[in-house]
Amino acid sequence: MLEHALRLTARKSRELLHTRLSYRAQRYLFIYIALGIPLLYFLSTRMAPILYAFNVSVREWDLLSSDKPYVGLANFSTLFADEIFRKSIVNTFKFVIIGVPGQLIVGLAVALLLHNVYRFRGFFRTVYFIPYVTSIIAVSWVFRWILMRNGWLNEMLLNLGLEPQLFLQSPRQALLLITLTMIWQSTGFQMLIFMTGLEAIPRMYYEAAAIDGASAWRKFRHITLPLLNPVLVFSAVIGVISYLQSFGQVLSMTNGGPLNSTTTMVLHIYNLAFQQFKMGSAAAATVVLFAVILVLTLLQLKVLNRKVEY
């Protein structure tokens, strides 16, 4: 009886072992397929192209000609001697410095307003979100039409007895206006992210603060903001990367003008590569952009980590 039971368990465990082995093989096969394909894919479409870009950046490469001599760092030195490239770096940072806080503030403001109302909340949320799903390019053309010299906005200004403005034709206004359209387009997304964050804050914190007689500002400053911090930092990181890559709006609204006041790094790369055919310089500019993004992201992640520990 006992012997029989023992034999049975032994067989059972052998069977188990067998299934476990085949299970293990199957498991690894699964892992290889599910992860190997993406890994190979990313190595070949992301990692290898970056190395390739580094390779191109040290060559003089005219798109139409076939020889591509090695020129060392010459592309980089011409690039930094180029006034327009330097300007494009400054402009790109302007987009980030105005755009990211702008987007966060507007998004947070709308989220807070919406958080305080209950009727029509769904309606407002939908409306504010619409710009986010529309094509940047199409929207840019609409803004261009509204902002042109004889456009709607100038006519309105005139009707109100105000001076018409140059808007996109002015080196002082164009960059700001493009940034505003970017904020306009991302408000809905930002608002949603913040609303989720706000809803996750336990109501009792506010109730406790209310008992203590805290003002609305103090509640915001000492409860809302600190608890929203992870969401804020996440949004800032994403925001910085996306504003660093400003291109479509600029290409469609000003094409970098007037006086290069809106030329961004990406637009400059595009022009170098596809208007002037200078692949080497364009790749060098790409490497610089990559370095900028890398440094900024690492910096921000550091800030993120510190905040989380705190």
Binding site: Y28, I31, L39, L40, L43, M47, A48, Y52
Partner: peptide
């Protein structure tokens, strides 16, 4: 098993980088 998986990972990695690089040039 662990070793084979990392080893093959490394091989894939180097293959992808060098393979693509030389292919292009």
């Amino acid at each position: 098993n662990k070793w084979t998986s990392t080893l093959s990972g490394l091989i894939i990695l180097t293959l992808a980088i060098t393979g693509c690089g030389s292919n292009n040039s």
